[in-house]
Amino acid sequence: MAFKHNVRQYRGLGPFTVVFFAWLYLPIAVVIFYSFNENRLVSVWSGFSLKWYAEALSNRNLMNAVQTSLSVAAIATICATGIALMAALVLVRGRNVKYRRVSETIVNLPLLLPEIVLSVAVLILFSQVGLANGFLKLVIGHTTFCTPFAFLPIRARLQGMDSDFEDASADLYANRWTTFRRVTLPLIAPGVFAGAMLAFVISMDDFITSNMLNSGGSTTLPVYIFGLIRQGTTPELNAISTLIILVSLIVAALALFIQARGATTNTH
């Protein structure tokens, strides 16, 4: 970069990027900073305190919402990943699959629609079917929009994996199930993991559908936080947000780490 005539270099890009990243991280930093504020008023600093964390962690409703969110996300992730894995195996590896393009579009349909439309769709569906169990409604709704997020990384990994490995396995006397269990699955594991991770995060993060399906006893974390925000900004909200940010960052770092390790096992 010291070379004066580097033709790819444009002036001002560096500072611009620095400002951009500052802008990207400023809101997060602000939330974290004010979560340690002792004052009841969010933006009036009056000293360091952890009391809002104590308050947040002893908040029954919050913990219930966390539990609901985790349960819904876990079940929806398992269902979505399983469904997506099977679909990807057929759509990538199957020979002479009829209507392959149409099938793929159907699996990815939730990505093509605005989520608000999707949430109205499931709301009307449940009202017509007469399903009253709020938890089950959430699980079904979340499974629907998580499926394409699980599908895409799995498909990408399968497409990147040479089918010679499966041929070699069959050549070495493994039947289709053994081949899947001992060759295909271990080799696409990073993709499956990434897909599941994405599905889990998307489910945990979802507000629109969960809010639409919200009923007593099935309030997810984002819906609960939304309710708190409507009551006004409080330092406790900052503490909750900071905890969420912390967990998100740990999960993201973990995902990246595992992804990076997966990338070292070359499948070409």
Partner: peptide, 20 residues
């Protein structure tokens, strides 16, 4: 017979050694 029942073995062009 499907491939896994044929008593023939193949050395693949790029070897297809299972990386894991």
């Amino acid at each position: 017979l499907p491939p896994h029942r044929r008593r023939v073995n193949t050395v693949f062009q790029n070897y297809a050694l299972f990386p894991h």
